[in-house]
């Protein structure tokens, strides 16, 4: 029974460790909206269940080391027999859990600070119908989410595109704001902070969100080729000017998406791939497997603790 539970407890870890190839890559064949939602839920699930099991393991296995932190009646040979995890290992697991939770907390604080700062700066930008024009020759466009949601575009980029291209750019940024893409992106980043195994999944969410906005723009404009040209033109102009402050400013090595994503986006717009529904089903099954194994392990530990308490009481009575 104990061995089975150990195997079950490792399910989310194994699923998470294999996410790089078993989830991230096939997700490209999914419709972008579905991919975004499922990947975010997947990342959060793995991070939450793994964190929960780490905390539980640490707590249950350190009864002998810190008896004062546990109920007195947990201190029974029955518990040690059913959960034979050395206290030293439990302590290590506890430290790991504390480290991961701290990282998650730091991530939340930093995102909140970033949102507040961008909102306050964006609130000062002059706007018409939610669009702020930046009189600058650099090629830059971005969507600012939050209370004062804005689309900021430089004149450099606007002059680079023709009328339909500009419509595509605006539709793309509007889709980011309308579908609250930043929420998915930030939740996935939080999951990656709480569990580094989820980093590739977080990057996949970043990419899926861009594909989602491209698809929205293509639908609105009525021609995916126009969107592909706009994306391509903006990327190429940015690439030709690496010293310019526009696109060259990377948001740090951890977040830089690299050029491969732009190529994938343009390719998808020009040569739509056949959608595969099985990927979504598999991802859903993996999410459910993580939750199921987590719940079973927690229920088992609960029953062991209950029995240990009974054993403790009967042991004292006799």
């Amino acid at each position: 029974m104990t061995a089975l539970m150990l195997v079950l407890a490792l399910v989310p870890v194994v699923v998470g460790a294999n996410a790089g190839w078993s989830v991230t890559r096939p997700a490209r064949a999914m419709p972008p909206a579905l991919a975004t939602v499922l990947l975010t839920v997947f990342a959060l699930t793995v991070a939450l269940v793994t964190g929960m099991l780490l905390c539980l393991t640490a707590y249950v296995s350190t009864v002998s080391m810190f008896p004062a932190l546990h109920p007195a009646d947990w201190n029974s040979p029955y518990l040690y027999r059913e959960c034979p995890i050395p206290a030293g290992v439990g302590l290590g697991v506890g430290l790991l859990a504390a480290l991961l939770m701290t990282r998650a907390l730091v991530c939340v604080v930093r995102v909140a600070a970033g949102l507040r700062r961008t909102s306050s700066v964006a609130a000062g930008l002059p706007e018409v119908a939610g669009l702020s024009i930046m009189d600058d020759e650099t090629v830059v466009a971005y969507a600012v989410p939050g209370r004062c949601s804005r689309i900021v575009v430089s004149t450099g980029l606007l002059r680079l595109l023709d009328g339909p291209g500009r419509a595509a750019l605006l539709a793309h940024e509007r889709a980011h704001l309308r579908h609250r893409h930043h929420v998915y992106v930030q939740l996935a980043r939080l999951a990656a902070a709480a569990n580094p195994l989820m980093r590739p999944v977080s990057r996949a969410v970043d990419a899926a969100v861009e594909r989602w906005a491209d698809a929205c723009a293509a639908r609105e404009i009525g021609d995916p080729v126009v969107v592909a040209r706009a994306v391509g033109a903006a990327a190429l102009a940015g690439a030709g000017d690496p010293a310019g402050p526009g696109l060259a400013m990377g948001p740090g090595p951890a977040l830089a998406a690299g050029g491969g994503d732009v190529v994938e986006r343009v390719r998808e717009l020009l040569e739509p791939t056949t959608r595969r529904r099985t990927v979504g089903v598999r991802l859903g099954l993996m999410i459910m497997a993580c939750w199921a194994s987590g719940v079973v392990v927690v229920a088992w530990v609960h029953s062991v603790v209950e029995l240990a308490e009974i054993a403790f009481r009967t042991g004292r009575a006799t």
């Binding site: 970033g114 961008t118 700066v121 600058d136 971005y142 750019l169 903006a234 402050p245 740090g252 994503d261």
Partner: peptide
């Protein structure tokens, strides 16, 4: 606008909350 540019360039937290149209190639 330049303040925003500066925030974007220097501050990872700020850059991460914005969705930019394209990334570098």
């Amino acid at each position: 606008a330049h303040q925003m540019q500066k925030l974007l360039a220097e501050d990872v937290d700020t850059a991460s909350v914005l969705s930019r149209f394209v990334d570098t190639l």
